[in-house]
C-alpha cells in the first residue's frame, strides 16, 4: 500500500505549532529554574547534619525517581482535584515537572558536592570563612561547574518530558500534533513536524545553556583563551 506524504495541510497549521512550542517553553523554563533551586537545596539538605531533613529529602528523591512522570502528573491533576484541590492543567504539569527536575538535580548536585576535595574545605575553614561562605565559594560553585554537562542533559530531558503534559490536555507541542492530525488526517506528517520542532528546541536549549555557562564560569573561558 503506497502512502502519499502530504505535508502542506499540516504545515499550513504552523501558527498552532508555534503556540504549542511556546507552551513547551513556558513549561520548561520555569520548571528548570525552580527545579534546580529545589534540587540544590535538597542536595544540601541530604548532606546536612539534620538527620530527619536528610531522610525526608532522600525519600522525596527516591519516590520521584522510581515512579513514572505520567503517574506523577495524574496524581497531581486528577488525584488532588478529587480531594478538593482544583488546579489548572498547566499548574499541575508545572508542579509535577518541578518536583521531577528537583529530584534528579538533587542527585546530580550531590555527586558534584561529594567530589569536592575535603582539603579545600579545610583550607577555607582555616582562612576563617563562615560556613555559608564556604558552601557558596568552595562547594557549590565548583560543583555546579563540574556537573554542568550532566545538568544540561537533565534539563533537555525535562523539555522533552513536557510532551507528557499533553495527556492532561495542556496545549504544548505534542497535544497540538494530536489536534492537527485529527483535523488533517495526516498523523505521520504531524508528528514528524513536531519531532523536528523538538530537535530544534533541544539544540537551541543546549546552545543557550552552554552560552550561559560560558558567561558564569569565567575560569573555563579564561582557560580556553589560553591566558
Amino acid at each position: 500500500m503506497t502512502y502519499e506524504f502530504d505535508f502542506t495541510s499540516v504545515l499550513a497549521q504552523w501558527p498552532q505549532f508555534v503556540s504549542g512550542a511556546w507552551m513547551t517553553i513556558l513549561l520548561s523554563f520555569p520548571a528548570t529554574v525552580v527545579g534546580f533551586v529545589i534540587g540544590t537545596l535538597c542536595a544540601i539538605g541530604r548532606r546536612g547534619g539534620n538527620r530527619l531533613l536528610a531522610k525526608l529529602c532522600g525519600m522525596y528523591v527516591e519516590v520521584i525517581r522510581n515512579t513514572p512522570l505520567l503517574v506523577q502528573i495524574f496524581l497531581v491533576f486528577f488525584g488532588f482535584a478529587s480531594m478538593g484541590w482544583k488546579i489548572s492543567a498547566f499548574t499541575a504539569a508545572l508542579i509535577s515537572l518541578i518536583l521531577n527536575v528537583g529530584a534528579y538535580t538533587c542527585e546530580i548536585m550531590r555527586a558534584g558536592i561529594d567530589s569536592i576535595n575535603k582539603g579545600q574545605l579545610e583550607a577555607a575553614e582555616c582562612l576563617g570563612l563562615s560556613k555559608p561562605q564556604i558552601y557558596w565559594h568552595v562547594v557549590l560553585r565548583p560543583a555546579m561547574e563540574k556537573v554542568y554537562p550532566a545538568l544540561t542533559s537533565q534539563f533537555v530531558l525535562l523539555m522533552l518530558a513536557t510532551s507528557i503534559a499533553s495527556q492532561i490536555s495542556v496545549e504544548e507541542l505534542t497535544a497540538i500534533a494530536s489536534r492537527v492530525q485529527s483535523d488533517t488526517f495526516r498523523p505521520f506528517e504531524a508528528y514528524i513536524v513536531v519531532a523536528v520542532a523538538y530537535l530544534a528546541l533541544s539544540m537551541l536549549m543546549r546552545a543557550g545553556i552552554w552560552v550561559f555557562g560560558q558567561m558564569i564560569f569565567t575560569r573555563q573561558r579564561r582557560l580556553r583563551s589560553g591566558r
Binding site: S166, S178, P187, Y191, L199, M203
Partner: peptide, 13 residues
C-alpha cells in the same frame, strides 16, 4: 532529541 511519546505516536500511526 525526540520525546518518547512522539516516537510512540510515529510508530503507532
Amino acid at each position: 532529541g525526540t520525546p518518547l511519546l512522539v516516537l510512540l505516536f510515529l510508530t503507532y500511526f
